[in-house]
Design a protein around this nucleic acid. Sequence first.
DNA 1: CTGAAAGCGCTTACAG
DNA 2: CTGAAAGCGCTTACAG
Lengths: 344, 344
Amino acid sequence: MKKSTQKRVTLKQVAAHAGVSLTTASMALNGNPSIPEATCQKVYKAIEELGYVYDRGAASLRSSTAGSGAIGIIVTDLVNPFYTELLIGIQQKLNETEQTSLLGTTFDSCEVQDRMISMMLEYRISGLLLFAAPGTSSEVIQRIQRFGIPVVLINRLFPDLPCDYIGVDNVQGGYDATRQLLALGHKRIAFIGGNRQLYTWHGRLQGYQQALNEFGIEFDPELTPESLCNRDEAPNLIEHLFNLQDPPTALFSYNDTIAIGAMMALKSRGIVPGKDVAVIGFDDIPEGLSFSPSLSTVTAHPRLQGAKAVELLQSRMSNPSMPIQNIVMPTELVLRESSGEPRY
Amino acid sequence: MKKSTQKRVTLKQVAAHAGVSLTTASMALNGNPSIPEATCQKVYKAIEELGYVYDRGAASLRSSTAGSGAIGIIVTDLVNPFYTELLIGIQQKLNETEQTSLLGTTFDSCEVQDRMISMMLEYRISGLLLFAAPGTSSEVIQRIQRFGIPVVLINRLFPDLPCDYIGVDNVQGGYDATRQLLALGHKRIAFIGGNRQLYTWHGRLQGYQQALNEFGIEFDPELTPESLCNRDEAPNLIEHLFNLQDPPTALFSYNDTIAIGAMMALKSRGIVPGKDVAVIGFDDIPEGLSFSPSLSTVTAHPRLQGAKAVELLQSRMSNPSMPIQNIVMPTELVLRESSGEPRY
DNA sequence: CTGAAAGCGCTTACAG
DNA sequence: CTGAAAGCGCTTACAG
């Protein structure tokens, strides 16, 4: 078994093998209509016989139409299943159109994100799907745009930046969830979890407050405690909340993963979620379905959102002068067990 | 706000700006020791001032040391959290070494996988982490290797192929799980889920049979029914099993996601997993911890496995003549609630 | 220590 | 319909 790291076959060799010029081979490969079918076939045959592999790097270097054709995906992390769902939606769409993706996970660090973006620029991506880390500055986005690379912001919006965006209606979602809890008879509803640096957090808070208002219940900052964004923090959060003078009877969680963490913490204190305490999450991750009690949530249709983000990027790539798109997808309240029965 | 898609700055311009030749600029950029510190600084300054971005494609085109430096990751899908965990481990490691990754998901289709590989070849990846789709032929692997691109097989082994591999000890894992169930007093233990085309399936089955043997229990093919690999199939599977003359009292599942699906199906039939029926899974996905009853499992240390796969690929890349590595990680039995108490 | 020149594998006007 | 030639942005011997 020889270590025969063969040199890559070049188009030039293909052309020679097919008995045509390099120009003709290139045009045939690219489906240029001025090359007759018969010639194309000769070229294809040579490609097959020689095991030729196109060199995208060389092609995009020479070609004026910038970009390698690959699209970049930057996501904060994959630990939260919501991002995974989003990524699944993105990948499915990308597979349909046979596009290649560069993936970077920033684990929520702006510094890592900067490095990631620089790398993707070096690889000459043709478009970027950016799930920006908390605290991302708009300069970062502008830098990418200055290279003529379209970027679609997912979920995180920079209001004064001319950039395509797709996200969900956080205010509506927060409102619907809270309203449901109020309608079930709850008066002490906590809003837990989430990073306050995030646009989405403020939207969901706003919806929450709006619903409270409508029901004539005063907003109590005690019920919106500071907390980190991962599940491990949930026990402390729950302990804090249920040691209050007047503890909550319902929780609206910034996202599902925190909601599940909170329910686990509740259970371990002997409090039964869905019975003693109502819980509604946000996102709609698969785990919410298997958990007991199953999690009521505001679905953000994560896979669909991912797919739509790709579509938006594709439209922008094929039509750079299209007006800036700002897609706000509707949310939907999905009632399962954790929101419980009405209280009287 | 002008659409100023500026032309990319080239190294040539950087050189001119710094007052050095293109050669010097290139060498400074690449940290060539023959360039004195002072000259390097001039170049760095020019890079900064001009907002220069390195063109990796052009560099790797010219450079003899093939490859763009990016590493490819091909995974079957992200719907099963095990792959997500693996990917998290991979990404964390890649972030440490500041490497870029191309991600492809095949959704278990060999056809899509072929396309994915071709694309990655076109992008001149420097290495590939391949979680091969069921039914992948060894020719596919050989094709990549012929281009001198190192590939690390994860989980799926091609015994007669000279290729680095990392996976877990499936036989041991299957043995440990089954032995545990036997020790708890079970005599009718089903082995459910998994794709029979997979090497890993046969390993786990072998361990299962071995344990049965040791306990003098005859292998009953009825308890290893055909089934698909996703959770949706679980209800049918459970119905089938529990309609048998002599139904199982314990389930050893090929993986955690099926185990959870099975437990959900059990619950909906009024059978209490962890009490009426013992369940042990394989993989160790986070959802197993939040599920009720919490899932006993054979951990495959997915994140660690991902990290180790990257390390293996890196060693291979820096040392192509290193002997073929065949890393089999030990598994570990993690006992939680679903495996239940001893039966008498 | 530094520079001029060739060339990586393609595409693209420009002729014919 | 087809080909010779220039050039994309780099790296790398080779001189000096």
